[in-house]
């Protein structure tokens, strides 16, 4: 049996996971999302990452970004490498992709702020 703290929401449930013939039974979770998280942690743990990318605009030297959906936990630093190479030189908006399909993982790296767009004067 494996014990796990759920990170889906701030509640932080302590869950217990039992494996039997490749099937998992989860206890201690307060909701369905917790169960999904527990099974994913046992099979292929996924995480979100948030960071910034460099911009070409002096008033906002960096722009916050995140991945549009969870990525495999063991690819976090590979994705960070990609993020570190980006320089944004157009005034992208919140939700715009700054890297499409990063490392072929099927998720984009998206801007999480309108700051470049609004700082120009809307």
């Amino acid at each position: 049996m494996t014990q796990l703290i759920c990170i889906v929401c701030p509640r932080g449930c302590t869950m217990h996971i039992e494996e039997k013939d490749g099937a998992y039974s989860v206890t201690g979770n307060a909701c369905k999302r917790g169960e999904r998280f527990a099974v994913s942690e046992m099979t292929a743990p996924m995480r979100t990452i948030c960071s910034t990318v460099r911009t070409a605009f002096p008033e906002a030297p960096v722009l916050p970004v995140r991945v549009s959906a969870d990525i495999p936990k063991d690819r976090i630093f590979d994705v960070m490498q990609e993020i570190n190479h980006v320089v944004v030189n157009t005034r992208v908006r919140r939700g715009d992709a700054v890297i499409q399909n990063v490392l072929g993982l099927g998720v984009d790296v998206i801007a999480t702020s309108d700051m470049l767009y609004t700082s120009e004067g809307r």
Partner: peptide
Amino acid sequence: LVRFQEKLSGPEYAE
């Protein structure tokens, strides 16, 4: 998470 049932970043939430 409570308000929008979404995992937003700080700037997204604020904006």
